[in-house]
Design a protein around this nucleic acid. Structure first.
Length: 849
RNA sequence: GCGGGUGUGGCGGAAUGGUAGACGCGACAGACUCAAAAUCUGUUUUCGCAAGAAGUGUCGGUUCGAGUCCGACCACCCGUACCA
């Protein structure tokens, strides 16, 4: 065997796999299927270490499951619509489609050398009409099922560029290009009725036992089921038509601590007053400044304005509360109006203090006296409190029981009713942008809003668009926009909004099961391949993408595109950590920050100019900060197997990992050692009789066991540690020829999910049958996994003082005797009486004195 | 602000409530070499000559025994509905 030259062997084996079509997924009813999917990439143009890590994990699972005999589906595609393409169009004058397709080609060329076991015949790109026509058809089907509707919603509006901004494009409340203060503006937009599934999306989380607990908790909190009281305040001094003010509260037990009521600036009452009162109009206008994100709203200064309107406390009509307009109240949640109880809510306390409102306490800590509060008293749910203004029912209750009692009592008094509320809002899918899936709807003066006829699908994006002026080019494209009504043939206008790109990624997993089907899916293919058995991706998608996908699968079932068994599309989920890197920063003459790629920097200085760079510790790799490590240079230097092994070797997959290149070189050295070991074994004389064959067989069994269990548990770093250990054992072993060959073939097979190319070479060289990739996974002989003796540490008062070696199944009483007779133990006891001795079989002995 | 997570040697990390630091990197020493690189062998938590002591972000608790469980905090990361 010659030197280890990855470039040569990797190309050779990739060709061999390709010719044998080993990764082509075939529907085989005789075999159990396994569908492994990694979150498909956005085609930014370059793959980065995060991609390599994600796809290598998926590839390890795919190759491992194939070796276990499963019929594996492992596809890849492109989440190809999105904002970045339009930004590129504006900056570089290149068409978003051209830019995207070129990026796809570039990224695919970078992915191929990594040797992933992907079925490229199923490749899809969401920006192609072949894909989005089915999305449009499903949208029309969903309209038919009442899952789509229009309503007004707020967007970020850049008043200078006269365009809608994404939250990402709002920086410190200002437009990223214009630098103008952003305003919140209402537009009529399209929505999916995801809220119709709130209860089910929540309860079905219990069944997702192979999802990370944290993701289920985050989704549950996001859906946010709450039990509360909805009731009406009677108003006083309010304009006509506003006799009552509906509020929703999860804390009706604190109703007697009410100090004020507050409404959202988008509340109908606020809008009415805005038109009639200049002071209120000025305040509401002020509230509309800034972006729409929850973070911007919640972290901003809490401000309010007394409207002059009063509401009457439902328990006492003589008790009036002022009604404020407050900038932190969201119209989307509850009724867009609240009552404030400053004594028992931090935000209300801050508000009441600021505006000089009373702060009456409802309860105190059990043994405390009532005293003026210096901060809100918000006890943990279980904490015992003493109600001093409680109602009859909750005076003896705490926490949730008090809330329930309060609801019951309010209902009995005819004040409101108990209501289950969800925080989850309907999914606004309208985007005022070009590079997305057109919403297949036509606005007709006579017929109203009409879905496009299915025979006219796809509604294709026009190619002749320009990005020289901000805004949606579809709006100013008359020949595309003008059309005829599919119902009455009258001249009509096309919807110019496109779909949120989350729609594209909410059903791609289903499309992969039949990427060439005439409809969105094929019933037989979907029935065989769905669900995804293992889904792998970043934890940043824990809520939105995964929740939208869960909703969409249900919608596809409702519209006949997925079977009822596929409404939870992902059987198991694994969330991987990010790949991070230092950021290298200098400044230009004007003091603006300039970022540098890692390869431009050496020992804290720029290679070219020698200028010192500022090193910002570590952050998620992002193009704008230039802290991306290009995997291609590692593949070029050391090969794909090194890159694959290294990204999985040190860190647990769910944890963030700081990229360091030194480890990559070390991995290459290790693979070279394996190669040399393989040569050495291959050159052994055929009749060589060695020693320790029994121990080698035990080590082999242990390696099979550890690697198998580690892969099953997504502990790839531990699988690799076990492979290091086995390699070290094997390189020190001096066994007979056949056992040595057997051991290294097993090593190759165990390595093959991680480093498939070198594994094939070793397999072939050591006389393995056929291709390594198609060979079955080894099984460990259970008899070789158990040892006859165990070493037991002996603790004295919890500190390790000695150890003894005893037969595996020795009785505890025997172990006690031996332990107490141990020389070191006797020395440490120094004659003191033993109070207690704890023997944990097979584990430890603790002597308490 | 709110929801979720993470924190262990010089570094990445390992450890069903049971020997803290597996495995790897780096460093150091030795072998080989005229020399270096490469390779191989060994050492490597800290303090201490040793015996021993301390030690898993901080403070407190439960336990025969805590990195692991509980409570309070600190720092950082992710998400926060138009980045994907």
């Amino acid at each position: 065997m010659s030197r280890y030259e990855p470039a040569q062997i990797e190309a050779k084996w990739q060709k061999a796999w390709d010719e044998a079509q080993v990764f082509k997924a075939r529907r085989d009813p005789a075999r159990q299927k396994y569908y492994v999917l990694e979150m498909f990439p956005y085609p930014s143009g370059r793959i980065h270490m995060g991609h390599v890590r994600n796809y290598t994990m998926g590839d390890v699972i795919a190759r491992y499951k194939a070796a276990q005999g499963f019929s594996v589906l492992h596809p890849m595609g492109w989440d190809a619509f999105g904002l970045a393409a339009e930004n590129a169009a504006m900056e570089k004058g290149i068409h978003p489609g051209t830019w995207t397709l070129q990026n796809i080609a570039d990224m695919k060329a970078q992915l191929l050398p990594l040797g992933f076991s992907l079925d490229w015949t199923r490749e899809i790109a969401t920006c192609l009409p072949d894909y989005y026509r089915h999305q449009q058809a499903m949208f029309i089907d969903m309209m038919g099922k009442g899952l789509v509707y229009r309503k007004a919603a707020v967007v970020n509006w850049d008043p200078v560029d006269m365009t809608v901004l994404a939250n990402e494009q709002v920086i410190d409340g200002k437009g990223w290009r214009s630098n103008a203060p952003v305003e919140r503006r209402e537009l009529t937009q399209w929505f999916f009725k995801i809220s119709e599934y709130s209860a089910e999306l929540l309860s079905a989380l219990d069944g997702l036992t192979n999802w990370p607990e944290k993701v289920r908790v985050m989704q549950a909190n996001w859906i946010g089921k709450s039990q509360g009281l909805q009731f009406s305040f009677t108003t006083s001094g309010a304009p006509e038509g506003f006799d009552r003010l509906d509020v929703y509260t999860t804390r009706p037990d604190t109703l007697l601590g009410a100090s004020f009521a507050a409404i959202s600036p988008d509340h109908p009452l606020a809008k009415y007053l805005e038109r009639h009162d200049p002071a209120i109009a000025a305040f509401v206008a002020e509230c509309r400044k800034g972006g729409t994100s929850a973070e911007a709203i919640e972290t901003g200064e809490k401000r309010g304005l007394d409207t002059g309107v009063r509401v009457l406390h439902p328990f006492d009509n003589a008790w009036e509360l002022p009604v404020y307009i407050a900038n932190f109240i969201l119209m989307e949640y509850g009724t867009g109006a609240i009552f404030g109880c400053p004594a028992h809510d931090d935000r209300d306390f801050e508000f009441a203090t600021k505006y000089g409102l009373p702060i009456p306490a409802v309860f105190v800590a059990k043994d405390a006296q009532e005293a003026p509060l210096t901060e809100a008293f918000v006890p943990a749910k279980t904490e015992e409190v003493r109600y001093i203004r409680g109602f009859a029912g909750n005076a003896v209750q705490t926490g949730e029981a008090a809330v329930e009692a309060a609801i019951a009592e309010c209902e009995a008094r005819g004040i409101g009713r108990g209501v289950t509320n969800y925080r989850l809002r309907d999914w606004g899918l309208s985007r005022q942008r070009y590079w997305g899936c057109p919403i297949p709807v036509i606005h007709c003066a006579a017929c109203g809003v009409v879905p496009e006829a299915k025979k006219n699908l796809p509604v294709r994006l026009p190619d002749d668009v320009t990005f020289d002026i901000p805004g949606n080019p579809l709006d100013r494209h008359p020949t595309w926009r003008d059309c005829t009504c599919p119902k009455c043939d009258a001249p009509a206008r096309r919807e110019t909004d496109t779909m949120d790109t989350f729609v594209d990624s909410s059903w791609y997993y289903a499309r992969f099961t039949a990427p060439q089907a005439d409809g969105p899916t094929d019933a037989a293919e979907a029935a065989y391949w769905m669900n995804v058995d293992q889904y792998i991706g970043g934890v940043e998608h824990a809520i939105l993408h995964l929740l939208y996908s869960r909703f969409f699968a249900r919608a596809m079932n409702a519209t006949g595109h997925l079977p009822a068994t596929a409404i939870e599309p992902f059987n198991a989920l694994f969330t991987q950590g990010m790949v991070t890197h230092e950021i290298y920063k200098t400044a230009d003459a004007a003091g603006r920050p300039v970022y540098h790629l890692p390869e431009e920097v050496e020992n804290g200085h720029l290679k070219v100019t020698g200028a010192a760079v500022e090193i910002i510790p570590s952050a998620k790799m992002s193009k704008s900060k230039k802290n991306v490590v290009d995997p291609m240079s590692i593949i070029a230097s050391f090969g794909a197997d090194t890159a694959r092994w290294f990204v999985l070797s040190d860190s647990p997959p769910e944890r963030d990992v700081e990229w360091t290149a030194s480890g990559a070189e070390a991995t290459f050295k290790h693979l070279s050692r394996v190669w040399a070991l393989c040569s050495r074994i291959g050159e052994m004389p055929a009749d060589h009789q060695g020693t320790g064959d029994e121990e080698l067989a035990r080590a082999t069994a242990r390696a099979i066991d550890e690697v198998t269990r580690s892969i099953e548990g997504f502990a790839f770093n531990k699988a690799i540690a076990a492979l290091y250990g086995f390699t070290n054992t094997l390189s020190r072993a001096n066994g007979s020829v056949q056992p040595m060959k057997e051991a290294i073939r097993t090593l190759a097979k165990l390595m093959s999910p991680f480093t498939p190319h070198i594994a094939e070479s070793i397999w072939a060289y050591q006389g393995g049958q056929g291709l390594c990739v198609s060979s079955p996974w080894p099984k460990a002989d259970p008899a070789l996994l158990v040892d006859d003796t165990v070493v037991l540490p002996i603790q004295i008062n919890g500190k390790r003082r000695a150890e003894i070696s005893v037969p595996k199944d020795m009785a505890a009483s025997e172990i006690e005797k031996i332990a107490l007779a141990d020389e070191d133990v006797v020395k440490f006891l120094a004659g003191q009486p033993v109070k207690k001795i704890i023997v944990v079989p097979g584990r430890i002995i603790n002597v308490v004195i």
